[in-house]
């Protein structure tokens, strides 16, 4: 997995590309966390549009960044989740956190 990270004011966006598993999540996590600590963005947007596969490591990646943003007083948004990944997102119970957003609309995930 690769990630393209860019800033727009206090909004940090990480575009994730490729497959998320336990192996690939580790690098993405370190890269994203280093930038959160350095820049302390008000909002972190994780863009999943380029993710072709994800196992529960992706859930761990989201949960960890959610806690991290909470710690720094910011918010996490998870955007552009492909249809194929909806089932694992729903199974994870992350829907209760109100972090999903798709094409500008709130993503129904309960």
């Amino acid at each position: 997995m690769n990630s393209k990270i860019y800033f727009d004011g206090s909004i940090m966006t990480a575009e994730l590309i490729g497959e998320i598993d336990h192996h690939s999540a580790k690098n993405a996590r370190m890269e994203i966390d280093a930038l959160i600590q350095q820049k302390k963005p008000a909002e972190l947007r994780l863009d999943f549009s380029g993710i072709s596969f994800m196992d529960s490591s992706g859930i761990g990646l989201i949960m960890g960044r959610y806690r991290m943003m909470l710690l720094y007083g910011g918010v996490l948004r998870v955007v552009n989740v492909p249809h194929d990944l909806e089932r694992i997102m729903i199974l994870s119970g992350l829907g209760a956190l109100d972090i999903f957003e798709r094409q500008g609309e709130v993503y129904e995930c309960t």
């Binding site: 999540a25 529960s56 490591s57 949960m63 199974l91």
Partner: peptide
């Protein structure tokens, strides 16, 4: 950073 969802998945 394991979510504890392996078997559930």
């Amino acid at each position: 950073e394991r979510a504890g969802l392996g078997f559930a998945v």
